[in-house]
Nucleic acid binder design. Structure first.
Lengths: 106, 106
DNA sequence: TAAATTTGCAACCAATTGGTTTCTTAAAAA
DNA sequence: TTTTTAAGAAACCAATTGGTTGCAAATTTA
């Protein structure tokens, strides 16, 4: 199951979860209370976010707090920066883009 | 079929398409030659990108050139900026985030 | 200790996704 | 005019998604 940050933020509920735990670490139950879905559905989203290392679980008694890992968020930034660079000097640059894509693929 | 920019960039092929046509408008066939899939698969991606107005089709004889619509790309920027604002002043700000989420929902 | 709470996990389900192949239409080239 | 080329549209398919319910494990609380 190939996960990446872009898949993680594709879902609106997950984007909302990210915003919420950006402020403070939260438990699945606390998070679920902000949405119209079940706690289990939120837990699945948390699992996906954890799989691509956007969040980290932290046990505390019988509760589990999820907190944001800021590092991975910067991958979105990085991609956007790459895009802007291409956009801003977009003429006669196709070869550069192809080289970039090739090196990114690996 | 509720489409948004975040779903559009969730797929790696679509991200690559965006990079390619950022440099210059391209036809489905030209795009497909850069990937390991069929022209039809690329066309489907183009359809999705067009649905959320990230690209625009432009007929030219029997060819159809797809070019990037920069405006929609800025929605990603906007979301990231919102996130950074929250992250940078993340203490005792939960009420603000909840208000923001409520107003964004509509 | 017994009951309640918090959570993850598994099984299941309908809808969506990314892909394919086949077919049709339209424009350009022979 | 006939043939080739470019592309969209439709039908189909397997895998994934986002969701559900039910259950078991572990920690609190009574």
């Amino acid at each position: 199951m190939r996960r990446d940050v872009f898949q993680a933020i594709a879902d609106p509920t997950r984007r909302a979860i990210i915003m919420l735990i950006a402020v403070q670490a939260m438990t699945p139950n606390a998070l679920a209370s902000h949405f119209d879905t079940t706690r289990q559905a939120v837990s699945k989203h948390l699992k996906i976010l954890a799989e691509c290392e956007l969040i980290r679980a932290e046990s505390q008694g019988r509760e589990i707090y999820y907190r944001l890992e800021i590092d991975k968020m910067q991958e979105i930034d990085k991609w956007l920066a790459e895009f802007k660079k291409i956009w801003e000097s977009r003429f006669n640059q196709l070869d550069d883009v192809l080289a970039l894509m090739k090196s990114n693929k690996k």
